[in-house]
């Protein structure tokens, strides 16, 4: 479970460029929920993810994961409980290292990186099975350097790596928006499958209204650092892109 309590974040504080992103923001995601977040540019979606992952530290307020306050933990400490897939397919994998080397690191995620040999023959067999489940034909290219893979392949691999050690929270930051529609579809299918199989608590940002309606168990619309719409269950199922766009324009008018 993830809980944000009265979280505030201001960029460029005390300058003419001061920008309040969140002011005493409250938000809770229950265990096993798959929340899709939509919102226009500057609504605070990415900042929200950065606050949760620890890339940005909040000015005030608390962030709790399973009831434990992680607000002051550095990013790499928090990464032990948080899996993240970025928009840019280059961010999640080491391009000069081979596929199995990347997977070997993901397997050790959150553990001590000491002086034990990182990989064994037995592991490689397991990695082959894991990659096979992606259905991209990568299982015969475990020796390939990740830099030679396509964006979609890399993103699928990143997803696999982010979820190999079951994270308490999975953050998906527009992770298919840099891919062509067909590849995006394949990656989204994997996303759904992995989340369902592992019952992962997930937060996903998207700009695609259809995806937002189709995927997830809850839809949240963010604007100006506030939740302006929050739908679950039946209510979410009955949404259409038109309804969402109307809600958007209503709020933008008010501002």
């Amino acid at each position: 479970m993830l809980r944000l309590q009265k979280v505030s974040k201001v960029f460029n504080k005390n300058t003419v460029n001061e920008k309040v992103i969140f002011d005493k923001f409250d938000f809770t995601i229950e265990e096993g929920e798959f929340v899709v977040i939509i919102g226009s540019n500057g609504s605070g979606k990415s900042t929200l993810m950065n606050l949760i992952s620890g890339k940005i530290i909040a000015d005030s307020g608390k962030i709790l994961i399973d009831g434990i306050d992680v607000s002051s933990q550095l990013e790499h400490i928090r990464a032990k409980q948080v899996g993240r897939v970025f928009q840019d397919p280059l961010m999640g994998t080491a391009s000069n290292m081979r596929i199995y080397e990347n997977l070997a690191m993901a397997r050790k995620k959150g553990k001590k990186f000491g002086l034990k040999w990182c990989i064994s023959k037995k592991d490689i067999q397991e990695y082959r099975e894991m990659v096979k489940s992606l259905g991209l034909g990568l299982e015969n290219h475990l020796n390939t350097k990740v830099g030679l893979l396509s964006g979609g392949q890399r993103q699928a691999l990143t997803l696999l790596m982010a979820t190999m050690q079951k994270p308490k929270i999975l953050l998906l930051d527009e992770h298919t928006s840099a891919l062509d529609p067909k590849t995006a579809g394949i990656v989204l299918d994997h996303t759904e499958k992995i989340i369902k199989e592992n019952n992962l608590t997930t937060l996903m940002i998207t700009h695609n209204m259809n995806d937002a309606i189709k995927l997830g168990t809850r839809l949240v619309m963010l604007s100006g650092g506030k939740i302006i719409f929050d739908a679950k269950g039946e209510e979410k199922k009955n949404l259409t892109p038109e309804i969402l766009l109307r809600k958007f324009s209503e709020v933008e008018h008010c501002i």
């Binding site: 990013e75 790499h76 400490i77 990464a79 032990k80 899996g83 993240r84 970025f86 280059l90 961010m91 999640g92 994998t93 080491a94 391009s95 000069n96 290292m97 990347n102 690191m105 993901a106 050790k108 995620k109 959150g110 553990k111 990186f113 982010a162």
Partner: peptide
């Protein structure tokens, strides 16, 4: 040396 983001994401 390759990708600091990835290393950070691995909790290192």
């Amino acid at each position: 040396g390759n990708n600091k983001h990835m290393v950070c994401a691995m909790g290192i």
